[in-house]
Design a protein around this nucleic acid. Structure first.
Lengths: 157, 157
DNA sequence: ATACTATTTAATATCTACTCCTATTTGTCA
DNA sequence: TGACAAATAGGAGTAGATATTAAATAGTAT
């Protein structure tokens, strides 16, 4: 149990991943596993294109379409995440007062809210040394009231 | 001074805006003013396309390119903001451990960091009622070490 | 082992957001 | 008022993402 903790934790990840697929009725294909492994192994935040390049070390003829589709699938079942806001057309905000953003993951709407304690988050000195921080905010994602409502209705029907 | 506080505050905004333009050596064009006024007047987080539609009520033949360019200019001089992450190709993240994101506004790189106190931000009940919150994070933007370095060099040279 | 169905490939098409180009127009400053 | 640099309109071009197709492949449940 001691030694190769790293590998066993990777193995666990894979086992968890396969379990998660089964729970969602998804087949365990080599492509899916390869995309997942590759993504987890990258410490950047790759685009589908970048993941595709790397997966091809393993499955040389995997198509970009599959990688794209798989990445979306992974984020649907919670095995991966989409970095906040990316993949959406650029949105502008003229409100200069302090406020925070909530993104509805379903309809894509961005909704303002304001919670005073979020205005002045304390940044640790360690980060201040590494970066020049120009903006800091709390960012929430989930379902907005409307989409929550629609989802509940579709369960009842 | 009492009565139409609203209008006077709008006027102030415009005066401030024009001052801000002059400080940055930007001309006060009708297009710029119209785009700014329109954006400030919208309480959504419009895309350039949406702003363009609305500005055309005022300047019917303004080009989308101008609106786009102007919106970028506005965010460069701090008269508007780009909503976190938007406008970038979709980026994926397989790291399921708690961490936060820092976006370099110059090179577009997303860098992970981890600050324990950010893992469990307290969401007020008021928001919990309004939304189904699936993710919450602290999000930072600024200049990464590399871009900070480049910027300093170019000042010296 | 078999049959059923999900999945993949590959090529094409489409759409939208954005950027680039160039001639023309227009603020600004002297 | 005139000259210059900045900004704009309009069209063309690019990139990213998605959708469509078809035929081939490969998990999975029985």
């Amino acid at each position: 149990m001691p030694e190769n903790q790293h590998n066993s934790s990777n193995d666990n990840k894979l086992v968890d991943f396969e379990k998660r697929c089964r729970q969602h009725g998804l087949k365990i294909t080599p492509q899916r596993v390869a995309v997942y492994k590759t993504l987890v192994g990258m410490d950047t935040h790759p685009t589908a294109e970048e993941v595709c390049q790397k997966v091809r070390d393993e499955i040389s003829n995997i198509s970009l379409d599959t990688v794209n589709r798989t990445l979306h699938t992974l984020s649907e079942i919670g095995a991966a995440f989409v970095v906040e806001g990316t993949g959406q057309p650029r949105r502008f905000d003229g409100g200069l007062e302090d406020h925070q953003h909530f993104l509805c993951m379903k309809c894509g709407k961005v909704i303002d809210f304001h919670h005073k304690p979020f205005d002045n988050i304390d940044i640790p000195d360690e980060l201040k040394g590494q970066f020049k921080i120009l903006r800091k905010t709390v960012y929430l994602e989930g379902l907005c009231g409307m989409c929550m409502h629609i989802e509940n209705k579709s369960i009842i029907e």
